[in-house]
Amino acid sequence: MTQAPTVPPQLRRPGRAATGNASGRYECHAREAFDDGWALVEEDRVLRTELRLEQPRSAITRNSSPDVPFDRSVNPYRGCEHGCIYCFARPSHAYLGLSPGLDFETRLTAKPELPEVLARELSRKSYRPATLAIGTNTDPYQPVEAEQGIMRGVLEVLRDFNHPVGIVTKGTLIERDLDILAPMAAQGLVSVGLSVTTLDPQLSRRMEPRAPRPARRLETIRHLSEAGIPTRVMVAPVVPGLTDHETEAILGAAKQAGARAASWIMLRLPLEVAPLFRDWLAEHYPDRAARILGRVRELHGGRDYDPHWGRRMRGQGPWADLARQRFDRAARRLGLDAPLPRLRTDLFAVPPKPGDQLTLAL
């Protein structure tokens, strides 16, 4: 069933993808805007981004998922102003007592002390290095990073420790940090995955309203590649009936921009993402909504989402097989089917602190 809108009609939401702000699944109460019959004229208001600060107790999050090639990650922000309607991270906002809808796009949390906490964790004698993933939940280069600079602080720590890092982003702000990333790449310590969901700027504007336009992301792939940073294009997510026909075009454009590898993920709609996506389709593509949702359910065993390991990222059945074959064939033809070079861990070292006794070189 489609969610009822939960934002007052006089509250304008330019550049926002979610149509509602339903309470999270852990809340005892639900709130919904309604007409009380008084017909009072209220001032139009624009829904703006709010930022609050958090003091993190830890920096590194561990996971044991067999679907991802890393066991640790760092997240500078909670929520994401890019506002991608399909974002699988939206349900995480419910843990904060906030809505995975508009709250996820507009009520953000930043962790300004994260670099210092990370440095302490990497300095522990028990720590053993492995690639640290950043951007696997919310984007570290979302617009608020321009002011906060937390991601840059994290990179400075990783550079000082010679620690390997894999970054996933849509944000072109990553170019700001080329002075750190390029030397790390020369040592085999960094790789970047840049997501390009569609080449259609109008579709992108509706689906991921505050992310850089597709052409600009391709420029970023070019700039990263020219700086010697191993970069893969991520065709993610593939939206059946809406973007799946663009697979070959996206791969071709990314190859021309300098991408060295490619990956893909099928659309997944966990928990609150499913009704949010349905409402978004009803608003922007009502003529195709039933066909798109039908295809999604075919891919996930008749459900909006199949959470099982090994299936949640790619789906199953003939449509999933066709998507995989198309991607594999195009990637192989373009030379994007090989993985990026494995990042080094043997260079890791805790930098000396002020007052530490230095070793004598022989």
Rank of each mutant, 00 (worst) to 15 (best):
R120Q: 15
L360C: 07
Y86L: 03
I174S: 00
A130L: 07
D337L: 07
E175Y: 09
R342E: 13
V192P: 01
S23R: 06
P115T: 05
H284L: 06
A259T: 05
V7R: 04
I167W: 00
R210S: 10
S64E: 13
P164K: 00
R332C: 12
G20Y: 14
L281G: 00
D356S: 13
L281T: 00
I229W: 00
R332M: 12
T169D: 03
A253S: 14
G302L: 04
D179W: 11
A215D: 14
R120F: 15
E113H: 10
L51T: 12
R48G: 11
R217F: 08
L224V: 06
P69Q: 06
W264R: 11
F348R: 03
R260P: 02
E32S: 14
A185Y: 02
Y285R: 05
L299G: 01
A119R: 00
L340A: 09
H284Q: 12
P214I: 02
V7W: 04
A254C: 11
L178N: 05
E246C: 08
E42N: 11
T345K: 02
D287A: 15
Y127N: 05
A110N: 01
H308T: 10
Q10D: 11
R329L: 12
Q148I: 12
C80H: 02
P270I: 02
K353P: 07
Q187W: 10
G317V: 04
A349P: 10
C28L: 15
C87W: 01
T345M: 04
A215E: 15
E32A: 13
R288F: 10
P307M: 06
L343R: 01
P115W: 02
S65F: 02
R332K: 14
T49R: 08
T231V: 13
L118G: 00
L96R: 10
E145F: 01
E175A: 15
M234N: 06
A236F: 06
T131D: 07
W264S: 06
T6E: 09
P240N: 10
S58P: 04
R128L: 13
V196E: 00
F327L: 03
R52F: 13
R90L: 03
H245A: 13
S64T: 14
G317H: 05
M1V: 13
D177M: 07
F104E: 03
A33L: 10
Y26H: 15
R342N: 11
S64R: 15
L11F: 08
L199D: 04
E156R: 14
R206N: 12
E32W: 13
P56T: 02
G355S: 08
D200N: 12
D179A: 13
L347H: 02
R159L: 08
L334C: 05
P237L: 08
R128N: 11
L340K: 04
N162G: 08
A186D: 15
H284K: 08
A361Y: 12
E246I: 08
H300V: 01
P8F: 14
A17K: 01
L322F: 14
R62E: 12
A94H: 13
S191F: 12
E81Q: 09
A330Y: 04
Q256N: 10
V74Y: 00
A59P: 01
A59W: 00
P9A: 12
H82T: 00
K353V: 12
H245E: 14
R314L: 11
L53Y: 11
P112N: 03
